[in-house]
């Protein structure tokens, strides 16, 4: 009983936490030379548009993490052949696709206002595009196989192969175009925003709080989805027996 109450409390905390992050991320003022806590730096060339970092970057990170998690459960499925691992694998892939689409859409709307066009084939846009293609292919493959064990095995194999090939883009993309993206190593305006420089302490605190909020939401959503899929599959199995 106490576990249930704790669980509910945890979700309420997550709700309040995220609300606070949204209010701070969008509400705090931006000034040219932030001197005390609660003032965000005004990055020339980005201005108010810099606020997207609190939402866009965590979704992009999560779409990669979700892909890796899905691949991890795929490997576990191949080793142990437990149907539950496949449910987890497909759930994480589905949420990954959702976050990947969110990151693409938010990024490209932002790009329209900042760079003047929705799509520029900047290296990061190319990599999110590739990630979208991989997710798309993964689900296309799943929908084309009827037998559940075969579907689980083959989609796990595909995601592992994709996971092995994806790192190649890291070596290739810098040769395609110079980066426009804030945060590219060669960005003349702001330099690498997340890894160094660009953010001050307040911004960093909000940014990582936002990442935590997104991860919390992600865990909650995947948990709901896994439980729902289990129920659906149990129901199907029951109806097939009769």
């Amino acid at each position: 009983m106490s576990g249930k109450i704790k669980n509910r409390r945890l979700k309420q905390v997550l709700g309040l936490w995220t609300t606070a992050v949204i209010i701070l991320a969008l509400g705090l003022p931006m000034v040219a030379h932030p001197s005390h806590w609660g003032e965000l730096p005004l990055i020339p060339g980005l201005e108010q548009r810099a606020r997207i970092i609190f939402f866009h970057v965590p979704t992009a990170w999560l779409s990669v993490i979700a892909f890796l998690t899905s691949m991890w459960f795929g490997i576990r499925y191949l080793r142990k052949k437990s149907p539950d691992d496949d449910i987890k694998s497909v759930t994480h892939a589905g949420l990954g696709l959702l976050f990947c689409i969110l990151a693409t859409v938010t990024g490209s709307i932002w790009a329209k206002f900042n760079w003047g066009s929705f799509w520029n084939w900047d290296p990061r846009e190319t990599s999110i595009f590739v990630l979208l293609l991989i997710y798309g292919a993964y689900f296309a493959l799943r929908s084309a196989i009827d037998v559940e064990e075969k579907r689980a095995t083959l989609s796990a194999v595909y995601s592992i192969i994709a996971g092995v090939i994806a790192p190649f883009f890291i070596f290739i993309l810098p040769r395609i175009t110079a980066g426009l993206h804030p945060g590219s190593a060669d960005d003349v305006n702001s330099g690498p925003v997340v890894s160094s420089g660009g953010m001050n302490a307040s911004m960093r605190v909000i940014f990582y709080s936002s990442v935590a909020a997104f991860i919390g939401m992600y865990l909650w959503m995947s948990n709901l989805r896994i439980r729902a899929t289990r129920l659906v599959q149990a129901q199907e199995l029951e109806s097939r027996k009769q």
Partner: peptide, 17 residues
């Protein structure tokens, strides 16, 4: 923008809850 985002967020949260 803040208001719209908050409304959307509450929508999502209630739905999940």
């Amino acid at each position: 923008v803040l208001l719209i985002v908050l409304v959307i967020w509450f929508g999502i949260y209630t739905y999940l809850y």
